[in-house]
C-alpha cells in the first residue's frame, strides 16, 4: 500500500506546502528577537512566579511563539495539577 502511494505521489506532501510551513517557522524566529535561551529563562521565571500561588505541572509547562495574522504571540501552556 505504501509503495502504491509512493508510486502515485500520494503520501508525499507537496514541496510547496513544505516550503510554506518551513518559512512560517523560520520567520517566527526571524521576526521576534527571542532566542531559545531567553525562552528557557522565561519558562523558569514563570514557573517560579506561578507556583507560589498555584500547584502547576512544572514538567508540562511549555512556552512557545506562534504566528497570528496581525501579531505574533508568546503562548504559555501551563497545566495545573488537580487537587483531589
Amino acid at each position: 500500500m505504501k509503495l502504491f502511494g509512493v508510486l502515485f505521489g500520494r503520501t508525499k506532501t507537496k514541496s510547496s506546502q513544505v516550503a510554506k510551513e518551513r518559512l512560517k517557522l523560520v520567520l517566527v524566529h526571524d521576526r521576534i528577537k527571542v532566542s531559545p535561551e531567553l525562552l528557557d529563562t522565561l519558562k523558569g521565571e514563570l514557573i517560579g512566579a506561578i507556583s507560589k500561588h498555584i500547584d502547576i505541572d512544572q514538567a508540562g509547562l511549555e512556552v512557545t511563539i506562534t504566528r497570528g495574522d496581525k501579531v505574533d504571540k508568546l503562548v504559555a501552556n501551563i497545566p495545573i495539577r488537580r487537587s483531589r
Partner: peptide, 18 residues
Amino acid sequence: MVKRGDMMDTADVLEILA
C-alpha cells in the same frame, strides 16, 4: 510548477508576507 505543487503560489507568498 505551481500546478503540480512544487512552487509556492501567489496566495502562499502573500499569506506569509502579508
